[in-house]
Amino acid sequence: MKILLVEDDDSHAQFIVDGLKQAGHTVDHAKDGMDGLFLATEEKYDVMIVDRMVPKLDGLAIIQALRASGNKSPVLILSSLSKVDERIKGLKAGGDDYLTKPFEFGELIARIEALVRRGSLEQSEQTILKLDDLEMNLLTRVVKRGSSLIELKNKEFRLLEFLMRRPDQVVTRTMLLEGVWDFHFSPNTNLIDAQMSKLRQKVDKDFKKQLIHTVRGAGYKISAQEV
């Protein structure tokens, strides 16, 4: 993927650039808002990571200018401002996702990938989600693995749906907190692990093939392939 990073802190930017390159992406780095906007209009990027507070031109102003000019590339806002209202401001300005510093690198990667794939996945109005022999009917709320029925509680169902809508994609604990519980603060994230272990018991325990996988340092992934 071709990624643009707009970030004024040099060494912080360097870590992000290195990390993204290691993950196999191409990265352009702009140190201020003007350079960022220039690069964003000149080149075509798969995803842009924009710091909320950069010199010369504010992060939100860059996004607004890009959206006004018809640029639809997904934008991840990187910010020191954690408050929910700041997040809402960022999304209103045309950002697609919002990540607060400091973050796990795995979180950043997972969110970028989710942004790029989002277009095709979330817009589909599928009523039946399928992965290997696991099948989820969103209308009747029936979940089956092979021929056996799996009974899920309300939030377990939402959790599995969230994973099934993002097959083969890393989903972080924070993404689950936000997407399934709508908690935009950080409660004890171990609780997500407790929830996941219950879900796994129901979905994977009695079957030979494991579908839900733990991705170390990042989160979880649902996949028919072994990780």
Partner: peptide, 11 residues
């Protein structure tokens, strides 16, 4: 000013 260095530190 605090979060950016902490973020760097954490990475």
């Amino acid at each position: 000013d605090m979060r950016t260095p902490l973020s760097r530190h954490r990475i």
